[in-house]
Nucleic acid binder design. Sequence first.
DNA 1: CTGTTAGCGCGTTCAT
DNA 2: ATGAACGCGCTAACAG
Lengths: 335, 335
Amino acid sequence: MKPNRRVKLSDLASKLGLSTSTVSRALNDHPKIPTATKKRVQLLADELSYHPNPFAKGLLKQKTKTIGVLLPSFKLPFFVDITDNIQKELKSYGYNLIVTTTGKSLKDEKEAFWKMAKAHVDGIIAIINQDHEEVSFLNDILDEGIPIIFIDRVVESIDANYVLSDDFTGSYTAIDHLIKTGHKKILYLEGPENLSTSFYRTQGYLEALKDNQINDTNVLSCENVDEVKLKLQSCPSSYDAIACFNDYYAFEALEYLQAQKVQVPNQVSIIGFADEPLCKYTSPKLSTVAQPCEEIGKISVSNLLNEINSLQINQPTEFKTIKIPTTLKIRESCK
Amino acid sequence: MKPNRRVKLSDLASKLGLSTSTVSRALNDHPKIPTATKKRVQLLADELSYHPNPFAKGLLKQKTKTIGVLLPSFKLPFFVDITDNIQKELKSYGYNLIVTTTGKSLKDEKEAFWKMAKAHVDGIIAIINQDHEEVSFLNDILDEGIPIIFIDRVVESIDANYVLSDDFTGSYTAIDHLIKTGHKKILYLEGPENLSTSFYRTQGYLEALKDNQINDTNVLSCENVDEVKLKLQSCPSSYDAIACFNDYYAFEALEYLQAQKVQVPNQVSIIGFADEPLCKYTSPKLSTVAQPCEEIGKISVSNLLNEINSLQINQPTEFKTIKIPTTLKIRESCK
DNA sequence: CTGTTAGCGCGTTCAT
DNA sequence: ATGAACGCGCTAACAG
């Protein structure tokens, strides 16, 4: 392995008998450079596989062409899917991506933001876990001129740009579908208390019942997946459908019912939320509400890039929240 | 949102009545600076939340403290898991991570390598798809002083550093276990032809049969998941176990058998490979061979960092291949 | 112990 | 149309 010998502008210049400025201009397609020289320069650049040193450039332009993505973990396919779409979208704009997982602690989350700031990313896209008591550090980061887009989850205490899936309508539609297909008593397995997504999904359930003149609501709160089976045990089994905060809850419910020899979907239908890959691997295959990962990725990127640009020309923008529609996926777990 | 006003060394210097070099030295814990000044400087730096501009630093040191990870897709949890572990490990060394997915085309793969080179990463960890006819571009990248570690898959034509899971032994152990637990006729669903992992796993199967004096080998080649059911249809069902190239193949086999009303594991046992999360969501839960994602992540990082350091002091190293043991996970799909 | 100077590689004046 | 000179922010070398 040879030592580090990267070719630079001055190398090209001396080989071509030109000045570095001319070479730079030629490479950047400056109007006053004759096409002939441009070609000559480009040719040598390609031959020596020259790439401009991003540090020199970054130092000059104060732009890194890199954006940071911050997510709780790689374990949830939903997050990964969004990240993937962000990456693809960013690629088309010539931007790079730095990813950091934050774990569950507020401290890690805060650190991750600072890490991004240190890396001088041009912007940040973040999925954050929960409410932060103290959000001044976010303002510090905004003060450094780094715009942030929050996705998937709303944090009450933070006024900012959000890109979310329309949890309320998604949940509403699912419940409405269950009712319209003849289900009378729908149990709802509610998610963690401090999650905005959980809140909106429960609201969707309640609203759908109300709009269908069903007064008999039935909500079972579970702080996490492990609580599902326990809670179901101590719950009268007078339901003909279970709607769930997410697919993992739904899977637990499915396992529980099957252990009880309850037939799904003949006796009880089940529906999840998120359309995680596992839905296709359970039997019966899980009905669910698909979240628009691709749109969330695309829209958050385009918004962030807008933000970056309007920041550059010193044009402050308003914070906005964008909700993106979900899609109902009916599979085998609903009759 | 305020305009970009990042605090720099000279800001600290002027506020403290010191020169930039003194401040720089204080912050870098230079021995000849009195502790008192160090404290004073550090205090102000914290207060103004100063972080050194990584571009200025990068320009000077020609080190980015960033490494690139290149993987085919985010869709396979196994890859994501490794990436996650790489990220965690890198974090502990103060390194950043740039991830790029390459898709399946050779062109994308090549481009991704160049992209990393352009970003001037200090090193690259790559999972690549298949054989490249023309690997000179890799040498071009090595020539720029960027070391590369390949993980998971071996590419014949590339002499380089590899970190792999021990596919041969993993597969051997699984098959041996099946035999020892009374299975007489084991069908093997072989993976894609051009994948090194597939090759070694098949070898493990063959060797295990041989060592147990079973001459009756039974290999069914499937280029991809979609072929599994088709191939099984045209295959005499005289087996009492199916071992598979990976978990997705195993899941297809499971679905096929269940559709044929064959009981798993009572009539036929199934075992996969990789320990993808889906294993726990099928019923019966899938037995499999777990790959050491954590070790692969850790070891590839430490090797890469070694490589980077020895490169710095101009000390060429030998290419080496490291194989890491797998773990057999017996779940419900084996009797 | 500390300040001054120089230079990392690039793009952008300002001259010519 | 092109070159010389400067500066982005930082640190290392060289004084003192």
